[in-house]
Design a protein around this nucleic acid. Structure first.
Lengths: 204, 204
DNA sequence: GCGCAACCGGTACATCCGTACCAAGTTGTG
DNA sequence: CACAACTTGGTACGGATGTACCGGTTGCGC
């Protein structure tokens, strides 16, 4: 039927358009990391992405939409990276506690952003979610993925209550990371988190 | 001597002026909590504080100065509250672990801002410090006060390495608080932190 | 081919921003 | 009382911002 052949859904971007869209989000994340969420303006995003100003309003209805989509992208990338790390560690037979600590500490360090910068961006966007309920669903999925993956690793390490242990371990990691960012220190968190993980498992 | 009678230091605000200054900082904190740091503009601050626009530039050289002073005020208030709580608990002979957990969870809940709002403001300002070294000194004093106080309480509870335990306990508290803010949940953190504190002390 | 929707990019505009300036009011001191 | 410093609040200005608009281009389905 004719209808079957012209079924490309409306509003589905063509390949080139999708690439532009992603370049814009990339630019948003870079700006959030380097200067902060206040600095995310249509003009600056366009400049960083090397695209004309109007492309920002073409692909995203508003600045809100731009930020929401950027948080979604950051969460999705980080989650995928987390799953890859965890799966590889489990298959390779690495000590699950080491895998858990590495998964937390390394996770945001890859991708096109530098480790520290992408951390700042992630936390800034998370904090945005505290004021915008629309973002909370994304935050929930994001932290949920961490809970699940860490729980599996802790269980493999012998924890009898992996959910609660993962909760505390993830919390400690996030809190210590924020503290490092806010005070400008840069010690290696791995030994401290490793010790916490051991204590949690041993106390099961 | 004549010199002795006119020794009021220059630039020391007179009482009425000091009240205005504080009202402005109060307004800054309120705006940071409700809308975010991007929304802190001279005009809006003046409006919230019910003062004329020019008063903001009179009492604070620039927007940077305004934000720095606001972080200082938040840190100072929170630290005083922390010390009060801890000292009272130690004198009253309350279980030091309960005191530690209460000191963390209750701490930012007082003051003119609602608990959740002042938490958001605190974290937002801490995150600002990640990008502005001038704020990091304040952040360091702030977290330092927590480390010290929590360390004393944990030591009283029998911890043999109070510094490290305080570090992890504070980290976990901050991380869990941020997670709650970002996901919109509101469970009581006390039992979880209490359990962590017990495990840490027991593992000494 | 041809038409239509998706896509592109330049420009315009109302609004808000940080900050400077200045004239009037207030207050403590000699 | 007079004076100087401090304080107040109204206004102005150059610049940046979010977003709307609109004519041109591209590429897919017929």
């Amino acid at each position: 039927m004719a209808a079957a052949t012209k079924n490309r859904a409306r509003n589905v971007p063509r390949p080139r358009g999708a690439a532009r869209r992603e370049a814009l989000l990339e630019a948003v994340l870079q700006i959030v990391a380097e200067v902060g969420p206040d600095a995310v303006t249509h003009r600056r995003v366009a400049e960083v992405a090397e695209l004309p100003l109007a492309s920002t309003t073409y692909w995203f209805d508003s600045k809100d939409h731009l930020l929401t989509a950027a948080l979604e992208l950051a969460a999705q990338r980080d989650t995928e990276q987390l799953h890859r790390t965890a799966a590889a560690a489990l298959l390779a037979g690495v000590d699950p506690l080491d895998a858990a600590v590495d998964a937390i500490v390394d996770s945001p360090g890859n991708g096109p952003l530098s480790g520290r910068g992408s951390l700042v961006a992630s936390f800034a966007l998370l904090l945005e979610a505290a004021r915008r309920p629309a973002l909370q669903e994304i935050s929930r999925r994001w932290t949920g993925a961490y809970h699940e993956t860490l729980g599996q690793l802790l269980q493999a390490a012998g924890s009898t209550r992996p959910a609660q242990d993962a909760d505390l371990l993830l919390g400690a990691a996030d809190g210590l990371l924020i503290e490092q960012l806010a005070t400008g220190t840069a010690d290696d968190l791995r030994p401290r988190l490793r010790r916490l993980a051991e204590i949690l498992v041993a106390a099961s």
